[in-house]
Computed example of a mutant assay.
Amino acid sequence: MDVESRLKDLPAWRREGEEIRRTVEAPDFPAAIRIVDAIAVKAEELNHHPDIDIRWRTLHLALTTHDQGGLTELDFTLAAVIDAIAAEHGA
C-alpha cells in the first residue's frame, strides 16, 4: 500500500511509523465527547478501533491495524469517517 499517496486524500492525518495520527480541536468539552461517541459507534460498525486521547477539547487519534502489523485500507477508511464526524461537529 502506498501510504503517502493515501494520505493525500486525508490532509489532516500524518504518518508516524506504522500509524496514522490526527489531532481534532472541538469547540468545547461536550462537543469533544460527542465526537468520541460518534467515532465509537462507527468504529464498532467497522470492528476497527482507534486509540483516542482526550485532553479537554483536544482529541489525539491514532490508527493502525494491530493484527496486520501496520497500516491497512481499514485505517484509511476509518480516518475518512473520523474526518466527516469532526466536520459535522464543528471541529
Rank of each mutant, 00 (worst) to 15 (best):
P11V: 09
E4K: 13
D37R: 10
D75L: 04
F76T: 06
L46K: 15
L74H: 12
E88C: 00
R21D: 03
P30D: 10
P11Y: 11
E44S: 01
G17F: 06
A43L: 01
H49F: 02
T72Q: 11
K8G: 14
L10H: 12
I54L: 15
A79K: 04
D53H: 11
W56M: 09
T72M: 09
A38M: 02
E88L: 01
D75C: 05
P50K: 03
S5L: 10
L59E: 11
F76D: 07
D75S: 05
T23E: 15
R22T: 03
T58W: 13
G70M: 08
R22G: 02
D9P: 01
L61Q: 04
P11I: 09
P27M: 14
E45K: 06
D37H: 08
L61T: 01
R22F: 04
L74N: 13
I85T: 03
E45T: 01
I82W: 05
A87H: 00
T65Y: 07
L71S: 08
R21H: 11
T77P: 04
K42G: 00
A80L: 09
F76K: 05
L63R: 02
H66M: 05
V41D: 09
A86D: 05
A32K: 09
D28E: 11
H89K: 02
T23N: 14
P30Q: 07
V24G: 09
P11L: 11
A43S: 11
D2T: 12
L59I: 11
L71T: 06
E16G: 04
L61M: 02
A31N: 07
N47E: 10
L78V: 03
I54C: 06
A62C: 03
D67F: 04
A62I: 01
D37N: 15
D51K: 06
L78D: 08
G17W: 08
N47W: 00
R55I: 09
P50N: 02
I54H: 10
V81L: 12
R57Q: 15
Q68T: 06
K42C: 02
L46A: 15
R14H: 14
R15V: 04
A87Y: 01
A87S: 12
L61V: 13
A26R: 06
